[in-house]
Amino acid sequence: MLQVSLLIAAVFCAIQAIRTPRLLVAAIWLAGVSALVAVLLYLLGAHEVAVIELSVGAGLVTVLFVFAISLAGEETTRLPAIIPRPLAIGLVAASILLLAWMLAPTDSPPAAADESSFTVVVWQERSADTLAQIVLIFAGVLGVLGILAEERPVEKPGVEAVQPGDAPADKLPEQVGFEVESSLEREHA
C-alpha cells in the first residue's frame, strides 16, 4: 500500500512537471519525482542507488536546473505542441503497451543466483562501467567548457606575417595581407 501511494505521488509530480508553464516550478516538481523514486528504490532493497538518486537526482540536478533557469531566464508562455496532441498520446500509449507486453514474463519466480556484494560488482565485475563513468565526466566537463566559452575575434594570418615597417601608411592591413599572400602564390608558381 505504501509503494502504491508513493507511486501515485511520483506520477502526480511528473505530470505537474510536464504541465506547469513555469520552469522553476517544473524543476521543483522534478525534484519531487526524484525523491519519491528514491524512496521506492529504498523499499525495493536498492539502498545504494536510492542514496545516489536522492543526492544526485533530487539535489545536484535540481541545483543545476535552478542555476540554468536563472541564467537563461524564465519563459512562461504556453506554446502549442509540436505534433498534434492525440497523435502524441497514441504514440505514447502504443509504446507503453509494447513495453508492458515485453515485461509480461516478469511473473516467473525469481531465479536463485549467487550474487556478489555491491562493492565487488561495481569495482571488480563492472570496472569497465566505472572507467566509462570517469571518461563521461571528463567529456562532460570539456563539453560544457566548450559550449560556454566566449567567442574570441579571429585574427588574420596574413596581417601577422607582415612587419610594421614594411607596410605603407596609406594601405589597410587587410590589403597588405592580401599582397603578401599573392606574392607567396607567385613564388610557389
Partner: peptide, 20 residues
Amino acid sequence: GSISGQINLGQSLAVTLIVA
C-alpha cells in the same frame, strides 16, 4: 535486477545510468 536475483548488478547499471 530484483526479479533475476541480481539486484546488485541492477544497482551497478543504475548508477552508471544516473551518472550518464
